[in-house]
Nucleic acid binder design. Sequence first.
DNA 1: CCTACCGATCGGTAGG
DNA 2: CCTACCGATCGGTAGG
Lengths: 224, 224
Amino acid sequence: MSRDASKKLRRRGGAKEAGETRRLILQAAQHLFAAHGYRAVTTRQIAESCGITQPALYKHFADKQEVYTSMLLLEVAQVKTALERIVQREIPVAERLRLAALYLLNNTHHDIGMMTHDMSNELRKEAQEMIERAFIEGLVQPLASLFENGMHRGLIRSSSQGGVSPMMTALLFLNSIDFFASQSSYELVSEARQSVAEQARLIVQLFLHGVTQESQQKENKNVL
Amino acid sequence: MSRDASKKLRRRGGAKEAGETRRLILQAAQHLFAAHGYRAVTTRQIAESCGITQPALYKHFADKQEVYTSMLLLEVAQVKTALERIVQREIPVAERLRLAALYLLNNTHHDIGMMTHDMSNELRKEAQEMIERAFIEGLVQPLASLFENGMHRGLIRSSSQGGVSPMMTALLFLNSIDFFASQSSYELVSEARQSVAEQARLIVQLFLHGVTQESQQKENKNVL
DNA sequence: CCTACCGATCGGTAGG
DNA sequence: CCTACCGATCGGTAGG
């Protein structure tokens, strides 16, 4: 590309690059916030990692909170689309569950624990409720409908059978996903270093059947 | 108590109250750090909530990090004692697991996710490793030995039978405990408002048997 | 254990 | 989108 072309692109792209810069900011914010949490990431770090100065951030977002919530809502919306597609496939429940786990392990940068902590401690009530609603609709509901699906087919215990509600099961499932996704520490446990595919298989196995020996299932009430 | 006695106690207790103040600081730090995380809690908040000024903190601890690590090591040591006592009881594995879950739900203020985040982002390597070792020894190992116990009796699948390692199971178990313990948000999910006893029962049930219908266990491979 | 204070850094604004 | 700068607050120290 010649210098003239580059110059032209830069000049003509004035308005266009505004959206591009906004996208860059959100992308940088996603990685930084996911790695260090809301409080530990400074607006200067975000600006620097996408090549602008800190005050320039405020041309695209009102304040730090708006950067955070915009980033989170965007991420949740992307995950929601993917999960809903997986949930509607015509394959066994266990297989859909495994694919959902696999997707989340590969694409969820933020762990729920840190996210909820940041929400309830750093954000305005308004933003809190918006994110919580999006989280429930985008992540929890698709998974809950999958568990409910299995319940209607009689494969999964209903509440009246001493089971757990689909929504609660979905939350616990997401919680376990996060455990693997945010394994920044736990290096002392060698088994934590499995492949993502193996982690997904393991979680599905745990949630469907627990850790009990199959041959022992009937006798467990007496011996365990 | 007369004024003279009080006065005497105060004077004589000079050295004694140093330890008492230290204890007060650790207690305040425990609640504050557990609720808001390392970064969000200021040394002034800790000092104020036990009735001293902020610079006085540094008569008892070298810096903020030392307050945090001292508090965490103390808490882990207490939990370790209780867990080891539960694990050694002569009752069924499932019952010991339920009692461990119950104890942790009632006494664990800190959630693991926030703890590991604070560790890896705010603390010196030296303190990190010390806490991680204490955590593994005090919380993970007792639970892992419980799962291993069930494995040796043939009640729980071993790794060669497609199962999970006892240590990994223990970590996932603790992770689920934390989900309930730190349910600051999730108020949209009504089922989250269960009694602690019900939460403990639910977690044990999930880890031992999963969510699958018992009557369907044998056919699951074909239909799920 | 206090008062007084320091350098660093934060989120955000002024003015161009 | 920049330079320059602000009030507030942080962890920690000096000196008593």
